[in-house]
Design a protein around this nucleic acid. Structure first.
Lengths: 272, 272
DNA sequence: CAGTGGTCTAGACCACTGG
DNA sequence: CAGTGGTCTAGACCACTGC
């Protein structure tokens, strides 16, 4: 393919492909990327298939050769697109088996987004967390919550409060805010009836896949109510972990504030 | 190249190449990798050249074509090796210019390992940090420090204590422990005379490049001395950030305990 | 054994940098 | 303009999985 911006990636095989908005090679104002390599466009198409639900959580996507045929590109180009999605943890490659849609329900990565680790050993060695749903309320988004979730202040949101305990010791107190629309029908009972990571439930019941998140971490002192729920004396310093979780296309779908007791655990991070 | 484990990657061109220790294809006991792809071996050779000092911090390494010729492999294989090193932030690719040895002295990534961010804006907007070296002592490693640095308890180490302030507000109190050998000659005066990231000084003066690190984060209450140095009242919760930083080959080279004031800043982390 | 992802090659051409 | 990294292809073969 000589590729004067991909004659073959046309509407018939790739209905919604977004071709480079400007002529290739012409730098546009102020650093707008005037060139999008083929594999990036393929990546975009794969992303669409993921977002649209064409491929379900945990299911295999078509093989590289099939995708190459579908998009009329070489296997290597598809590989590069899949490679990036695998690095971002949206897809999982398994040699000899295929490429699968990443999910939060797998045993190995149950706590993909939870960086809290016991002082000795790993979370798994403490056995499963004991989850206690305290409540699940429907209310109107405060200005702060609305800003995080990119909705209008006053829009309906669900607020979930829960406590996680390890080995019987309450360790994490969490408040979650979810946009009411995508999570219509979520109740405290439904949450209590589910045994597994919450994000797995979101995938299975609401088709919402959390794909990445940002956390803001601070040291704080809990208020009296928080002390009670975590069963710690006033004046105990806690880690405040404010998380904003995103689905595809950088859409924020959950705001979460966690309070972590860090006398027997720590938040583990790797720097590169 | 037909490659029945790389006849061409021989001693003459790649003096220290470690060939797959076992015959390819024969799985050995308990999951030991019995197969090492060519590009991984090339990666190992590049790593050696980095570690040996053949290529200095910030300097360009040979072009892909040159390396391909040197190792007698295709450009694609060299590319894949470099790709991984670039992902790990050991190398930096610059299109049209070359591939460079990553360094901590560059403006853009000055604070590569510092995840503290002001509530509004970024660290750069606050101007440069004011660094105050409190002291730099030579002492014997405690059991804990020795365990972290993988040396013997009682071995000589340097302990550095300093305070970082932003906009005149003391925000970070840090204690560092360094093995005395590689850092022979480091003094408080030398540290005070240097204007820039400490890791940049380590590169320039001691040839030690920090390549990755692990952090353990907790919420703690400072002791009276720490309160004094940070000018905060007793009872102020602080983020305790214990960092273990590594050079090449997973060699630990620095243990660091930081106390972060998080009323105007937060520790920012991204999850994937 | 067929099917999947993983490695490796050789070659063409494109995009970016700097002299 | 030459030199660098970046993209894309086509094809061969290897390693792993499961039937």
């Amino acid at each position: 393919m000589t590729n004067a911006r991909n004659p073959s990636l046309d509407a018939s095989v790739a209905p919604t492909v977004v071709d480079a908005p400007l002529a290739a090679g012409l730098p546009s104002v102020l650093g707008t990327p005037a060139f999008s390599p083929l594999y990036q466009q393929i990546k975009g198409l794969l992303l669409q298939s993921l977002q649209s639900g064409e491929w379900k959580s945990g299911a295999a996507i078509p093989s590289e050769l099939e995708l190459a045929a579908r998009y009329r590109v070489s296997q290597g180009t598809v590989r590069k697109a899949i490679d990036e999605l695998a690095v971002e943890n949206l897809l999982v490659r398994r040699q000899g088996k295929g490429t699968f849609v990443a999910t939060h329900s797998e045993q190995q990565v149950q706590y993909r987004f939870l960086k809290l680790v016991p002082d000795s050993g790993d979370l798994a060695s403490e056995g499963p967390a004991q989850r206690t749903i305290i409540d699940c309320k429907r209310l109107r988004a405060s200005a702060e919550v609305a800003r995080g979730l990119a909705i209008r202040s006053g829009d309906a949101v669900l607020q979930v409060r829960r406590v996680l305990a390890f080995g019987g010791v309450p360790t994490i107190l969490e408040d979650l805010w979810l946009p009411a629309g995508p999570f219509k029908g979520l109740t405290a009972e439904r949450l209590r009836g589910y045994d597994g990571p919450m994000y797995a439930l979101f995938e299975a019941e609401f088709g919402v896949r959390m794909v990445r998140a940002e956390e803001k971490i601070r040291a704080i002192l809990p208020d009296p109510q928080q002390c009670g729920l975590l069963a710690v004396p006033a004046g105990t310093p806690l880690l405040s972990v404010e998380r904003l979780a995103y689905t595809y296309k950088d859409t924020p779908m959950e705001l979460r504030q966690g309070l972590y007791l860090t006398d027997k655990h720590f938040y583990r991070n790797e720097l590169h």
